[in-house]
Nucleic acid binder design. Structure first.
Lengths: 258, 258
DNA sequence: GATTACTGTTGCGACATGGGCAACTCGCCG
DNA sequence: CGGCGAGTTGCCCATGTCGCAACAGTAATC
């Protein structure tokens, strides 16, 4: 996704949109230089330099050395903790994800339902993680992931009907796109207390997820592990479910729900 | 601080600077409407509306209702966890700050030294907190606060010399501005293991801070409590020091240092 | 040590964009 | 039902943003 006029949404302020894209690039990549940022955005490097300088003036970006590369700056901390419940889950959940990612060797995420989408709000990549993509904040359709199935299974009937009444997009060859099959699958998730996604989001990628409970039966989040199919055999996935359930209970307790 | 041409730094991209100011306003105020944002920035409300729409398109801002007020959006989570050590301290420290703020009834902060400045990276306001200002990410001169004195006392001799060789700005009538007096004060802080600021940052405001240790003797942060002078008597401050020291040890342990 | 290549920065002027104005829609209130 | 104030949007033009060219600095190569 570039930043050419074709990609830009109508009615947005171009230079602001570009500046946010820079922040997202730095959040994903960790660090970058001006030339790299310019290429990513599809703009001249003097343009990138000025946008970065503006972010730097407000401490959202920080340069290492006199003419060095750039990382996110400490000013982004101003935006944390002002989000309400999600930031509470993030604060408590992120160390848990990291512990578990280390233990399982795979990536661990916590996700919530937001409207008709699933959003990852915590992410910890396992030591053997292949992808470097930053999924935090990104929306995915709930029928395509193990987390999504967990959250959908626990959603209200009205919310399920809303989501299942629309065409279920096939994001991978094995995505479940038949609403009847999906309802059966959600029934299975409710019964088993966990969900799996077998190459349904991406070929070669498996995932398992369990619910994180709030008060009573309410499900406030899902915690999941994912990894390549060749490592996630049935036995590994069963073990992961058990570990995820322990982590889910701990997260719930730390949030004051149990 | 407005956003008129007089306030704007040379060389920054105006519209990006304005967009960041909107994010900072929402982080501080919690929520705002377009008219309020426009007034804060000193621009027309159509301008504010378009800037907010651009932030909204990238989910950094979220509108409540069809024409309702705005808050920070979940997209700001993309920027967390990409900061390195500070974000680790934030994740672990923020719940600690909140527990302690509840317990002490005053505001609690965690700060680090960054160059010649002190930066607050965690903040929890007590139930009785008066100020609503968001201090996270803001820089203050280290000689003016209890946290600053703790961090300065633990800094290298070179760093102390650098900071004390410059004019010590009086930000309040009681700010210590004499370098010799400050050195004596830092000696006292090292000996006592805590610092106090008696209306040195702001008339009517007291603060106490203790060091958070990393490996060995290294001080990686300071944790502090602050509140109005009429509530922070000598006895209360002694009790606060004890509580802050417990919290500092816990934070240090959770960061894997002790 | 000189040369080359690449990085990031900055002055300048053109023009594409951002911004203000006016008018609009919508919800709330009397 | 009308007035008020919020947020939104079409339009046009003033200006802020951008690309170009040149620069400075650093590292690698010969």
């Amino acid at each position: 996704m570039g930043n050419s006029p074709h990609d830009r949404e109508a009615g947005v302020v171009q230079s602001v949109d570009r500046a946010i894209a820079i922040l997202e690039l730095l959040a994903s990549a960790g660090e970058a230089g001006i030339t790299e940022i310019a290429e990513h955005l599809g703009v001249h490097k003097s343009t990138a330099s000025r946008l970065v300088a503006t972010l730097q003036a407000r401490e959202l970006v920080e340069q290492h050395g006199e003419r060095g590369r750039f990382t996110l700056g400490i000013g982004v901390l101003r935006f944390t903790g002002a989000l309400g419940r999600q930031s509470e889950i993030v604060r408590v959940g992120t160390p848990l994800c990291e512990e578990l990612a280390d233990k399982l060797g795979e990536s661990v995420h916590i996700a919530v339902l937001d409207g008709a989408d699933v959003i990852n709000i915590c992410e910890a990549r396992g030591p053997a993680a292949v992808s470097t993509q930053n999924w935090i904040g990104q929306r995915t359709p709930p029928h395509t992931s193990s987390s999504g199935k967990v959250l959908l299974a626990a959603a209200s009937r009205a919310q399920q009907d809303e989501i299942l009444s629309k065409e279920l997009e096939a994001v991978a060859p094995r995505t479940i796109t038949d609403p009847r099959r999906l309802r059966e699958e959600l029934e299975r998730v409710r019964r088993d207390g966990y969900a799996v996604a077998i190459e349904e989001f991406e070929p070669g990628l498996h995932g398992v997820a369990v619910p994180v409970h709030g008060r009573g039966d309410a499900v406030i989040a899902a915690i999941s592990a994912s990894g390549p199919a060749y490592r996630m055999k049935r036995k590994q996935m069963r073990e992961m479910v058990a570990e995820l359930q322990v982590a889910a209970r701990e997260l719930s307790a730390r949030l004051g729900h149990r």
